[in-house]
Write a protein that binds this DNA or RNA. Sequence first.
DNA 1: CGTCAGTCGATTGTCGACAATCGACAGCAG
DNA 2: CTGCTGTCGATTGTCGACAATCGACTGACG
Lengths: 232, 232
Amino acid sequence: MAQLPAQLHQIENKSRRERIIELLREAIVSGELKPGEALIETEIAAQLGVSRAPLREALQSLSREGLVEALPYRGTIVRNLSRADIEELYSFRALLESFALRRIIEIGDPAHVALLRGYFDAMLDAAKRDDMRAVNDSDRGFHDALIELSGHRLLQESWQTVSLRVRQVMALRNRRNRDLTKVAYNHIPIIDAIAESDVARAEKLLHEHIASAGDLIAEMWEDGGTPNGATP
Amino acid sequence: MAQLPAQLHQIENKSRRERIIELLREAIVSGELKPGEALIETEIAAQLGVSRAPLREALQSLSREGLVEALPYRGTIVRNLSRADIEELYSFRALLESFALRRIIEIGDPAHVALLRGYFDAMLDAAKRDDMRAVNDSDRGFHDALIELSGHRLLQESWQTVSLRVRQVMALRNRRNRDLTKVAYNHIPIIDAIAESDVARAEKLLHEHIASAGDLIAEMWEDGGTPNGATP
DNA sequence: CGTCAGTCGATTGTCGACAATCGACAGCAG
DNA sequence: CTGCTGTCGATTGTCGACAATCGACTGACG
C-alpha cells in the first residue's frame, strides 16, 4: 500500500441531500434567508438543479433542527424568532454550556484549558485588529470547544441545534459595536476558574456571560413575525 | 355553527410520512425492532403498502432523532446502545429535568404541584395492583409533566429525543421486579420539595432519583453491538 | 351588504422507474 | 496460498409525472 503524495485531499462524496442541507442551513443561519420567507420546493429545486426528492428530505432535516417550519400542504417557511424564543434559546444555551463546563472540570485535563486559552488568544488578536468577523469566529470556536471537550455525545447533538440558532440570531440582529477587546477579556475569568477547578465560580461566570449576551440581544429584538401568538 | 354530538372525534388527517414515523418509532422504543436490526426500505415500504418516498422521509426523521443510524448507500439500522450511551442518556436526562424543576419552582403555581401529585396517586394505585405497565406509564407521565410544566419549548423539544430513548432502554432491559410501591413513594419527597420551593433539595433528590435508575440499568447492561468502539 | 357553496391555481404529498454506489465473491497472476 | 482486479446482486439515491389538499377568489342568494 504505497503512500501517495500527501497533498491529495479526500474527495467530497456527499449525497445531494447532504449538500442541500448544508447549503440551506448556511443560508438561514447567515440571515440570507430571512424568517418568514417561504421555501417553495419547485423553485429551490429548479434553482439548485436537483429534483424535489432530495430537497424535500433536506427540508425535513432542517425542520427537525427547528430552522424551518413545515406547514402541511401549505409549504415550508424559515422559522420566525420571537423575543421569547431568544430568551429560551439563551437560557437553554447556558444550561448546556454549564453542564459541559462541569464535566470539563471533572475531567481536569490541562490540555483542555490550554486549548481554551488558544481560542482566547485568537479572539484577543482579532479584537485588536478590530476584526469583528474573526472575533465572532473565535468566540464560536471557544464555546463549541467547551461542548466538544466535555466528551458527551448527546450534549454535542443537542448543542448543534442551539448553536445554529444562536448564529442565526447573531446574524439577524442589528450589530451594535461594542468594545471588542472587552468582549474577549470577558472569557479570561472563566478559563481561570476552570483551570483552578472552581466549579461554582466558573459556572456563575459563564452563566452571567451568556445571560448578558442574551439580554443584550433580547432587548433590541423586535418581534417581526408572530411565531405562535398573534397581534391581529 | 351547530355543535354536533360531542362524541365525534377529530378524524386523523396525517400524511403517510407522519404515520410511518409514529409506527416505526413505537416499534423501536417498544423494543419490537431491536438494535442493529436492518431497516430495508423496499421491504418496509411493501409491508406497509406505501412507496419508498414517504418511508425515506420517515427514516430521515428517525435518524435525526437518533433512534436509527443511516449509513450512506448501505442502509439504515436501529441504533445500537452501548453502556456509555446509557450513562450519557441518564446524565443528560437529569440535566434537563433539573432545569425544568428549577423553572417550575420559579413559576410557583400550586396547580402544577397538584398535577404532579395526581401522577403520584395514579402511580401508587397501580403499584398496589402490582400493575407494572401502569406504574411505568404514570412514571413517564410524571416526568413528562415535569418538562411540560416548565413551559420551555426548546426544552420540550430536546426532551422528546431523550424521553424516547429512555423508553427504548427500559423496554430492552431485563425487567428486574423491584418493589413497585417503593418506586412510587420515591417521588413524594421531590413533590414536597417543589411545593416548599426548596430548589436545592428538590434538585438533589431528583438527581439521585434519576441517577439511581440509570445506574441500575447501566449495571445490568450488556453491550450487544459495538456502537462506536470495537472489541475485535 | 354579508354569507356561503363552488371553482381554480398553486403547492405539497406520493408513486413507480431509473441511476449510482456498496460489499461480496470469483478469477487470475505471482 | 496470497493479493489484486473485475463483475454481480442488493440496496440506496434521484428523477419526472400524477394525485391530493389548501387558500383565495367568484358569484349566487338571502
